[in-house]
């Protein structure tokens, strides 16, 4: 089912996020290869995903903070089959959740490591790396730190 990875790198054909008013800043910063989080001034917690309301305390006194881009692998899975007939990317690939040092857990994919469970360990340190998929969108992926 896999196709040449070169083809995927030449022209990205996957889903492209559509930034909203409350997430535009996040995607702008991703474009600059920086990871930013929403932060609640009321309960002093960073949270993911970006939205105007704090999911911990429902406060609207929220702002943005720059994240270190470092964290640890919280969980992962290795995708060997994708149900979308129009998917053109390489298989298998690694999907994951990363627990950032700032606290929140975010969904992502892991690159720079073989898609084989013997090389991927929950708890291993990872750091963000950005993949430019369009002129305006860069995806925050993670690689072993």
């Amino acid at each position: 089912m896999s196709t040449q990875p070169q083809a995927a790198q030449q022209r990205y054909t996957g889903p492209v996020p559509l930034p909203q008013q409350e997430s535009d800043y996040y995607w702008q910063k991703c474009k600059q290869h920086e990871l930013w989080l929403r932060f609640c001034n009321h309960c002093s917690e960073a949270y993911f995903y970006p939205r105007d309301i704090c999911p911990n305390c429902f406060s609207r006194q929220t702002t943005w903070v720059k994240a270190s881009g470092k964290g640890e692998l919280y969980t992962f899975a290795i995708v060997h089959q994708i149900p979308r007939p129009n998917y053109q990317g390489p298989l298998p690939y690694i999907i994951a959740m990363v627990k950032l040092v700032e606290g929140p857990t975010m969904p992502t994919s892991i690159v720079g490591v073989e898609p084989d469970p013997q090389y991927i360990k929950i708890g291993m340190p990872v750091e963000v790396t950005f993949e430019d998929i369009t002129e305006n969108i860069s995806l925050p992926k993670f690689k072993p730190a």
Binding site: P15, P17, P19, T75, V79, P83, I95, P107, S109, L139
Partner: peptide
Amino acid sequence: AQYELPFGIASPPMTYAMACTR
């Protein structure tokens, strides 16, 4: 669609699998 789908987290086998790995 903004935070999971672009990373290829696209169907229940994938989401449930991540819970199982944990």
